[in-house]
């Protein structure tokens, strides 16, 4: 029983990362209709930057978190301003997808050049000894990971529903034309969305890397898992992204007990894709989003 729960926990840890990636993709998609596959790459980039910051400058692992969040939200706004917004003005959505795939490749290349084909990790935020609860072994970092996801979800919800910038962002997401007529600067709202996605990439990368090892090859699987989670949850739905991510991780973990990991992953994905046959808009998506 306890190692069955351990499988679930391991799956949920994977799921938290997928959920954070999917959430970033979802925020960007809902506001600018861009599917940013590069989000998976930024997570690994943030992780390895944090590792270098920690080992190079001797900063404590926990302290790298706010630093990375600031750097990556500002950095993503820069990337959006310099690369994505100009491209979005000219390219069709399909071409724009290619742009983000290209960015994903570029991030992978940057990681390879900067960090080589080697796995990296750093110490946990708060002690390496796992907490033992009822025969379960819980690395303390799991709590940080779950916390990062919770903070992202809650913070995003508060921002979107309780502030007027949030209102303007939701208006932009719903109908950019109508929003612009009210004097909302739609481009600025989109930049904010990219900044939020950057912050989430930093949260995900910095929090996950102490549990695991990351290297440049992790970029693509993360992008794919995040994308599947976002689509299954309902592209543009933040709740959906989180549900899709956690579900994908959970199913992988549980199936992995019985089958080869590849088969487990394939089955988990197939099961989620089957959801799309029944609900093409995804679990939490609204039909109008699909049509658009």
């Amino acid at each position: 029983m306890s190692d069955y729960l351990q499988s679930i926990l391991g799956g949920l840890a994977d799921g938290c990362v997928y959920a954070l990636i999917a959430l970033g993709m979802s925020v960007i998609y809902s506001i600018s209709r861009i599917i940013s596959l590069a989000q998976g790459g930024f997570v690994v980039l943030a992780a390895l930057c944090a590792v270098s910051l920690q080992s190079g400058l001797g900063i404590s692992p926990l302290a790298t978190l706010p630093i990375m969040v600031v750097i990556f939200s500002v950095g993503m706004i820069g990337v959006a301003q310099i690369v994505i917004q100009p491209a979005a003005k000219r390219a069709t959505p399909e071409r724009l997808l290619l742009v983000t795939v290209g960015m994903l490749q570029a991030v992978g290349g940057l990681l390879l050049i900067g960090w080589g084909n080697l796995p990296y990790t750093m110490p946990a935020f708060t002690g390496d000894a796992p907490v033992k609860v009822a025969g379960l072994s819980l690395p303390t970092q799991y709590f940080w990971l779950a916390g990062a996801l919770a903070v992202s979800v809650l913070g995003l919800w508060l921002l979107l529903t309780k502030t007027d910038i949030g209102l303007a962002m939701r208006a932009t997401a719903s109908n950019p034309g109508a929003a612009a007529l009210q004097g909302i600067r739609v481009d600025r709202m989109r930049l904010i969305a990219f900044g939020l996605a950057g912050a989430m990439a930093a949260l995900a990368g910095t929090t996950i890397v102490p549990i695991t090892f990351l290297q440049f090859t992790t970029v693509t699987p993360y992008a794919v898992a995040g994308f599947i989670a976002a689509v299954v949850g309902g592209l543009g739905s933040n709740m959906g992204a989180v549900t899709g991510g956690l579900l994908l991780g959970l199913l992988q973990g549980v199936f992995g007990r019985y089958w080869n990991a590849d088969l487990a992953q394939l089955t988990a994905i197939a099961l989620l894709v089957a959801v799309l046959v029944i609900r093409p808009q995804g679990i939490f998506g609204t039909p109008e989003r699909v049509r658009r």
């Binding site: 190692d3 351990q6 499988s7 926990l9 391991g10 799956g11 840890a13 994977d14 990362v17 072994s137 996950i208 549990i211 695991t212 090859t217 992790t218 699987p221 993360y222 898992a225 992988q252 973990g253 992995g256 007990r257 080869n260 990991a261 590849d262 487990a264 992953q265």
Partner: peptide, 13 residues
């Protein structure tokens, strides 16, 4: 047991 190359943790395995 097996695990996929992008697994965050293999403690369950």
């Amino acid at each position: 047991a097996t695990f996929s190359p992008d697994a965050v943790s293999v403690t369950a395995q």
